[in-house]
């Protein structure tokens, strides 16, 4: 579904990615792992055309999207939940969900049944939500665009344990429904049982790819620092 080969990306003169390879098949949940500053978010930014790569190719469903503009990439079916639960705080929950909605399976009712808290807060302004609720809203907003592939960048970072569980439950539901997901997260305990494939980045390169079972303690220690 998504095929990234040999991606190289620069921030101005400094190179951040030195050849990232990544591939996701339909219905898979792929975990993108690595320590801080190893290029996970940059990879995602490059896929979405926010920091266009200088070399390498990105293909989505057989089409080359390496040079495409951000909104076109999103229209083709890539949904992003950016790092740091970015909602539009000046708008209400409902407006956040509906403004960029596209017709399809996901609508306001389905999002609200996935996150019942959003139904309770429907007419509240997004900046009155707690961090966890804002994260739910960010996920809901991405779902409302009815993506074929959902990209979650650190969706549970910095949230209270109870809220994290609610978000993990939602991610499990989405996976069970057959949505393809690319996940960046540091909590191995939650990620590994869910992932179909894992990928480890180090210094802007894919250094390891394989099944979660094959990820030995030795590898974890070496690349993930756990």
């Amino acid at each position: 579904m998504l095929n990234v080969t040999n991606l190289e990306t620069f921030y101005g003169p400094s190179q951040a990615l030195f050849g990232v390879d990544l591939s996701i098949a339909a219905g898979e949940l792929v975990a993108l792992m690595g320590r801080n500053g190893m290029g996970k978010t940059t990879t995602i930014r490059s896929v979405f055309g926010l920091t266009p790569p200088s070399a390498g190719t990105i293909e989505f469903e057989g089409k080359d999207i390496t040079k495409a503009q951000g909104f076109r990439i999103a229209q083709m079916g890539l949904g992003l939940v950016p790092e740091g639960r970015r909602c539009f705080t000046n708008l209400s929950v409902r407006e956040n969900l509906l403004a960029t909605a596209r017709p399809g399976h996901w609508n306001q009712r389905r999002v609200e049944s996935l996150f019942p808290r959003l139904a309770e807060r429907r007419d509240q302004s997004a900046n009155t939500l707690s961090g966890g609720e804002q994260q739910m809203l960010a996920i809901g907003r991405a779902l409302m665009t009815n993506p074929k592939l959902l990209v979650l960048d650190e969706a549970t970072e910095g949230l209270a344990p109870v809220i994290r569980q609610e978000i993990w439950r939602a991610i499990r539901t989405l996976k069970a429904e057959g949505l393809s997901i690319l996940l960046v997260d540091k909590t191995l305990k939650e990620v590994l049982p869910l992932a179909s494939h894992c990928l480890i980045l180090e210094k802007g390169q894919t250094v390891w790819a394989g099944e979660p079972d094959a990820l030995t303690d030795d590898l974890k220690d070496r690349y993930l620092g756990v």
């Binding site: 979405f48 909104f71 705080t89 407006e95 403004a99 907003r141 991405a142």
Partner: peptide, 24 residues
């Protein structure tokens, strides 16, 4: 309307609006 919400989004963060599939 939806247009108004999208306009607010375009003012606050055009990039985030674009990653939702709407050209600002």
């Amino acid at each position: 309307s939806r247009f108004g919400a999208a306009l607010t989004m375009a003012r606050l963060n055009p990039i985030r609006l674009a990653t939702s599939g709407v050209e600002p």
